[in-house]
Design a protein around this nucleic acid. Sequence first.
DNA 1: AACCTTACCGGTAACGCTACCGGTTTTTTC
DNA 2: GAAAAAACCGGTAGCGTTACCGGTAAGGTT
Lengths: 337, 337
Amino acid sequence: MEKQTTIKDIAIALNISTSTVSRALRDAPDVKAETKAAVKALSEKLDYQPNRLALSLLNRQTNTIGVIIPNLDYVLATMVKGIDEVALEAGYTVMVCQSDESYGREIVNTKRLLDSLVDGFIVSVSSETKIFEHIKKIQDKKIPLVLFDRIVNNIAAPKIRLDNIDGGIQATEHLIEQGYKKIAILAGPENLNISNKRMEGYLQTLKAHSLRTDKGHIIHCDFNQQYAYEATKELLASKNRPDAIFTISDRMAIGAMLAIKEKGLSMPHDIGLVGFNNEPIVSLVTPAISSVEMYAFEIGKATARAYIEMMSGAAGMSDQEIIIKPKLFIRASSKRR
Amino acid sequence: MEKQTTIKDIAIALNISTSTVSRALRDAPDVKAETKAAVKALSEKLDYQPNRLALSLLNRQTNTIGVIIPNLDYVLATMVKGIDEVALEAGYTVMVCQSDESYGREIVNTKRLLDSLVDGFIVSVSSETKIFEHIKKIQDKKIPLVLFDRIVNNIAAPKIRLDNIDGGIQATEHLIEQGYKKIAILAGPENLNISNKRMEGYLQTLKAHSLRTDKGHIIHCDFNQQYAYEATKELLASKNRPDAIFTISDRMAIGAMLAIKEKGLSMPHDIGLVGFNNEPIVSLVTPAISSVEMYAFEIGKATARAYIEMMSGAAGMSDQEIIIKPKLFIRASSKRR
DNA sequence: AACCTTACCGGTAACGCTACCGGTTTTTTC
DNA sequence: GAAAAAACCGGTAGCGTTACCGGTAAGGTT
């Protein structure tokens, strides 16, 4: 690694002081035009680039956002894309760290970025995370924090998320409207807010239609195709077999689909199926699976915008909550009327 | 943003010098045991964390790797996961920038990270990139560089990639073995190395089996489901209709599949289909699509390892090339014997 | 001629940290 | 009991940059 050209190199070459070079580069008014020209010409020639480390140290800000996410699946990658786009535009650099759904790695990542590498955080917590001390620590240090997607309730920070309850409602309403009576749900891990909210929408809707909720029709399992497959197999073998399944992710919907096919049941006739996320895959399988679009890219962009607003010291940001409305896309797996 | 506790704070509180605090924290031999204890206790209490910016400025290294990738699709996200895992283990922080397949943004990203933010690069170029001055610039500055997946040929750097030719061969051999005679290929963008290599394997294999190559059976199109769909429709409508299609990505295979189904042709009977990447999706569609597994996670890990080796000054790294062997997974879409 | 602007530039300190040199104090040695 | 060795600690400089203060020389004003 060669030594980068510094302001000092230019100063020595032109036999002027570093202060003057610094001012010349920033077009300060009190530098002679020809001095400026000389400095700029030489800095161009030597391919001078200011050392951001030195600047950050001096100004106590890095212009870097630390983004902590649990993984890089389709939804989160899309959200990161949205964050990236807006942040880049605004002159921020983004540092993405994935925790791989591990509480431990989430802490390690947070700690590292806290070493003065970033001046703010955008966080979506891992499904394993039940203790939020590391998140609170960010706030204790008065470092800006924005939560998105998998938010934490009892922390006061701008939050950008989907209206998960509404997503659950839309899915369940649709299934009821299609004449399904015994609707099961494959919910996610028990402590995961987003999955619980989707389930809440489901429960609300059943209640509103005076449908009995069978405890056996609520299954918690990991965000995982295999688990969903197993769970569905059990559901289909139970004595009170459901006639529809709502899964809170598309991966799980695929797992469910496989189990349904294996059992020789047909969709949408015997069983209705609705997923969540509206990943491209759901329109490619047969039958195509109805799914709730969550506008991940928009959520990402809104998150970055909230961050930027917060950094610019906008008032009333501290516990603002931006809620994006989902939209159900109806496909063959649940359309029987 | 509150002021972080610094070494100076500790020094003042304990009425000792900053040098001593620094040494105490690093367990230097010439510090009294009780002084060490006091320093450590206080630093614990104040939650002291060394300022990495200051350290980086001092040591002229950031322990951060700049990863430049064209997007965050399944394959690249998996590779990044691999890079992340190894890098984190080795104490590096990873900074991921996606160029969104845009040459301009690739340059912007490179430039930013070059501002002393990273001390090395891991790069996979965008499909739009035809000029590599920005990559050469990295090397001109003697900054370590590792290329992976979408490598650049005329640049001397460690390269980690799939044996794309072999992937093309495996796919084509398999189709021939299954009795297909008129095998078309949906290749990627023309200047993209990986797609050309896969095509090279395809061409070699046809030649080895003395099969005529029909110019009309070689279609270049973007890495995109829609384009692949259109291209396949044309292929199926042409007078010399192929009896098998090899696509150099799974997304394209899906597009091809849709066109084939629409035309009312059956797989594998009328048309054989083989994709590339072995994404989870291919085993979920009907019929399941044969695909070439490219071990993206392994490639990512190998890339990070090569980077680390290079940083530790290992000799003979400068133009080492690590080539991962792909493996065809045969599924219903191409198995007719 | 004495003073005052204006235009330009240099020096210093600081951001947080460590390497290096040097200086006290205490302990050891004969 | 004096000299030598060890143990411990402080001060300074420097990484690259800019903010701030101050200084010099040219030109302008009475």
